[in-house]
């Protein structure tokens, strides 16, 4: 699944570790989600959406949808 996590993080000048700390997960998790190697659970997706103040579908995109 594609996502805009890296762009949203860059807009706020957050490192992967900064985002991980805010989400309460490991930096490896953020890296895996950003690079599309791991799709987060719904609870974690909601936490990410809440953190950025956006709906989930504005962050996570269906395969084939462009960012």
């Amino acid at each position: 699944m594609n996502n805009r996590l890296k762009v949203l993080r860059a807009e706020r000048s957050w490192s992967q570790q900064d985002l991980a700390d805010r989400l309460g997960v490991s930096r490896q998790s953020v890296n895996a989600i950003e690079t599309g190697r791991y799709d987060p659970s719904l609870p974690l997706a909601f936490t990410i959406a809440d953190l950025f103040g956006l709906p989930i579908e504005a962050i996570f995109l269906r395969d084939g949808d462009s960012e």
Binding site: V25, S26, Q28, S29, I33, Y38
Partner: peptide, 8 residues
């Protein structure tokens, strides 16, 4: 383990 990716 609370980190779902590490658990996975």
């Amino acid at each position: 383990e609370t980190d779902e990716y590490l658990r996975y």
